[in-house]
Design a protein around this nucleic acid. Structure first.
Lengths: 121, 121
DNA sequence: TACTAATATGAATATATGTTCATATGATAA
DNA sequence: TTATCATATGAACATATATTCATATTAGTA
């Protein structure tokens, strides 16, 4: 039998041409995939998880965050910038002090759910 | 005035010693922070977002995923292994074919919420 | 057996990322 | 102004990560 375009994985796999075509049609767009992954990526680092966890308890200035997390000021500041870029946190300046807080109800919701999920497993 | 241990950021920052001590006491543990970040990190890549999105529509074998996502078989396989390591997907073997599907109700919930969140902004 | 299909995996490479260091900026106080 | 505090930021470095390539494994088929 001659080879055709569709001679593999036809009987065993779920996808016949129609199914695959339908799924390809419903594919998430590359730009949306990137936005979603960027959002998750922001919580994909233990330092940022600690920062968000702390800020969910209370608004805090950079200095206090460095004390609480026992990290260098620069590292904290860099991570805060990243979190601000995806709008997970916002800042409020008072004099020379900058207060950061969580700026996204969705973050609190998802973060709490995931914390629970990870804990009882 | 002589310098003391706490002579900075006292009047302006929110954290007096008590507040900071309380927050430090409630800190997320390093291992939990790592678990949480690993979970989010799994969704922190556009390729894996596409894979999860596709698998949420239908169980699929590796071959079909490569067709749907127009990616190399090896790349897909590597990412599926990563997703399996954090138990976001599971596999089911039928002969030489391996079917993957989402193995975590929490993923569906969070993914859907986040997709909505990202979309109307 | 030999052959092919479906998937998995180790190594290599290029890119991304997190932290540190040094320094810059901005604000307040002396 | 000068000095200091709080924060931000660019560069450098080390580590992590995603993809590709080649090959291994496993299961079916001739």
């Amino acid at each position: 039998m001659e080879k055709t375009l569709h001679d593999t994985c036809e009987e065993t796999c779920s996808g016949n041409e129609l199914d695959l075509g339908k799924i390809k049609g419903n594919l998430i767009s590359p730009s949306t995939a990137l936005e979603v992954s960027d959002w998750f990526k922001a919580l994909g680092d233990p330092t940022r998880v600690k920062i968000i966890h702390a800020l969910l308890q209370s608004e805090m200035c950079v200095h206090d965050l460095t004390q609480v997390l026992e990290m260098g000021q620069s590292a904290v500041s860099h991570q805060l910038r990243l979190l601000r870029n995806v709008r997970m946190v916002k800042r409020r300046k008072v004099g020379k002090t900058v207060y950061y807080s969580v700026d996204d109800d969705h973050v609190e919701e998802i973060f709490g759910q995931t914390l629970q999920h990870v804990k009882h497993d």
